[in-house]
Amino acid sequence: MEPVDLTRPIEPGMPVYPGDPGVSADASATMGSDGFRVTHLSFTTHVGTHIDAPAHMEPEGATLDEYGIADFRFDARLVDLAGGDRDSGGDSADDPGLGARDPVTPAMLPDGEDLDAEVDMLVLRTGWGAYWGDERYFDHPYLRPEAARHIADLDCAVGLDTINPDPTPTERAGEANAEPEGVPAHHELLGAGTFIVENLNLSADLPERFTLRAYPLRVDADGAPVRTVAE
């Protein structure tokens, strides 16, 4: 397959986690006044399509610089939890698959017998990427703690087309499904030393198996934006 870019653009006005500062891109030098262009960018380590390192949530967790470049190449398995027609290559907001704040349970995920030994990342397409840029994006489906534990037990990282593997705080939080408090899915995954890649654009027609490359900015931090490509 031709390489497919799964990365959301980083730009002012883009969705960010509630309470996080937004993205700014201001000119620090211009062609008219300086004869060249330089842009001052400001954003957090968890903006857009990004990777969470264990240090994001775990006091003794590893930071990104403790990994080699090969650790950011994954043998991925697509788990399509979404409905909708993707023949056009776009997200389908008419039928995003899972409903608002629906839980993903272990029964929805492959088990060890269904998984090739080489697979080291599950890419979960919930369909909620259809709402990127809309307030509904924050009422995404989430991983039940036991589903996150199941993924960790498979020794897999996880990629998501949502901003969070846990429920994101909004006005609708806790309305149904006995939502867990805090960030238990983060702790299950990062506590096991695996990665979480969030805000993937999974609108393309992807095969069930592919290589996913998610190379972060070279920063020794708790996470970083990634340019994520499926091959």
Results as ranks from 00 to 15, higher is better:
R136C: 15
G35H: 02
G48P: 00
P106T: 07
F43Y: 14
T105E: 11
D52K: 15
A29F: 04
D34N: 15
E135Q: 15
L41S: 07
P106G: 11
E146H: 12
D94K: 08
A82S: 14
G127Q: 06
D71E: 13
A70G: 10
D102N: 15
W128M: 10
D116M: 04
F36C: 14
F36N: 13
T49S: 08
D85Q: 05
V23K: 05
S33L: 12
A53K: 06
T63H: 11
G129Q: 05
P21K: 09
E58L: 09
D75P: 13
A100Y: 11
M108C: 08
D52M: 11
P15W: 02
P18E: 13
M14L: 04
D71Q: 12
L81D: 03
G13A: 00
A29N: 06
T30L: 12
P18Y: 08
D34I: 01
A62I: 06
A55P: 11
D87P: 10
V119H: 00
D91I: 00
S92I: 01
Y137E: 13
A82N: 06
I69R: 15
G19R: 12
E11D: 00
V119L: 03
A27H: 08
E118H: 01
A76F: 03
A70F: 09
G68K: 06
P110D: 01
P145N: 11
H46P: 01
V123N: 14
H40Q: 13
P103G: 12
T39S: 08
L41K: 13
S88D: 11
D26A: 14
E146W: 06
G19Q: 14
E66M: 12
D20H: 05
T30I: 09
F138E: 12
Y142L: 15
G19L: 11
G61K: 06
S88E: 10
G84A: 12
D34K: 09
V47K: 10
L115Q: 02
G22V: 03
A107V: 03
A82Y: 00
D94R: 08
D85T: 04
W128N: 12
H140C: 15
D94Q: 13
G84M: 04
H56V: 05
P59W: 02
V79P: 08
R101T: 10
G13T: 02
P12E: 00
G83I: 01
Y142I: 09
R125S: 14
P59L: 02
D26S: 13
L81Y: 01
G19F: 09
M121F: 00
D111V: 00
E146R: 07
P18L: 10
G13L: 01
R37N: 14
D87F: 10
E11M: 00
W132R: 04
P145M: 08
P15H: 00
A93Y: 04
R37Y: 09
H140V: 05
A117Y: 02
M121V: 01
S92Q: 08
H50S: 07
D80Q: 02
G99R: 14
M57K: 15
R125H: 03
D111Q: 07
V119G: 00
V16M: 05
L41I: 07
R86F: 12
L109T: 03
G13C: 00
S42K: 14
G112D: 13
F74M: 10
M14I: 03
E118F: 03
E66G: 10
S24E: 12
A100N: 12
H40P: 13
S24D: 07
D134R: 12
G35L: 11
R136N: 15
